[in-house]
Design a protein around this nucleic acid. Sequence first.
DNA 1: TCACGTCAAGCAGAT
DNA 2: ATCTGCTTGACGTGA
Length: 294
Amino acid sequence: MKIGYPCINRSLDCKGNRTFRLKSYSEERLIETVEKNLECLQNMLEFNTERDLYFFRITSDLVPFASHEVNDFDWRAHFERRFKKIGKIIEGNDIRINMHPNQFIVLNSDKENVYKNSVEELRYHAEVLDSLGLDESAKIQLHVGGVYYDKEKSMNRFAERFLDLDDRLRNRLVIENDERSYSISDCLSIAEDTDVPVVADYLHHKIKNEGKSFEDIISRVSETWSEDDGRMMVDYSEQAEGEKEGRHAETLHEANFTKFLERTKDHDFDLMLEIKDKEKSAQKALKIAEKIKI
DNA sequence: TCACGTCAAGCAGAT
DNA sequence: ATCTGCTTGACGTGA
């Protein structure tokens, strides 16, 4: 099991997700921003390996406006060596990487332009992972999308469009259950038609689960991951006590996390901790995991 | 330096 | 109708 956290490190004084307003777009600004983001990405990866955190989610903001029409700069060529260098660090330390496009990426949208833009944005994500020289175990994790008053049709539309993607991109995609539309069971049903691996999100499953327990369903989820896909990925987060349902907790709760590990001890997976205090909770989680030694 | 309105983009559920 | 939250709040103007 590898443990990691998404996108941001609060202990370091660099920011790896710098961006700027579309209004301020210029090639100089883009280069400057990507330069700093890559530098910080490297810092974060080094920070992580020094602390035995070998799973990391790279921010979608790494290259701002990468898939926007305003951007015709060949950032891949310009930063090729930088990407390769970071890729070597990733490879050398056997770090697992994923990315998670934001909410605007909806592959199954009923609007043609949203679909088109989503594919472009997914291509950008794949280009980042390709530039780093990573194999297809580096994943791009997305939700199934909208329901549009007809869930079956919307799931079919997802499957069709997924199968229609280029191999290189499709082989990097994985789908994650969300807390209101598509449960793990729904994702598994899509996986049957498409062979897309499924990422199980523990908190989302707690909120939407059709009465199935996490430990029961995780076996079927693990079967969606092939050899080339790498180890199954699981997302873990906790409900912020007293806050609205689905809100992430500020810090990891030891007793909850211990219980989670015990409930899932029959399975090996890489674990992404979606907890507000990031690397702090990740280090805490690592200690707990080592203590009870799964 | 700080407060705060706004930010490329979608969607569903709550208010 | 409008607001909120989402993998992550950050940018940027005005005082």
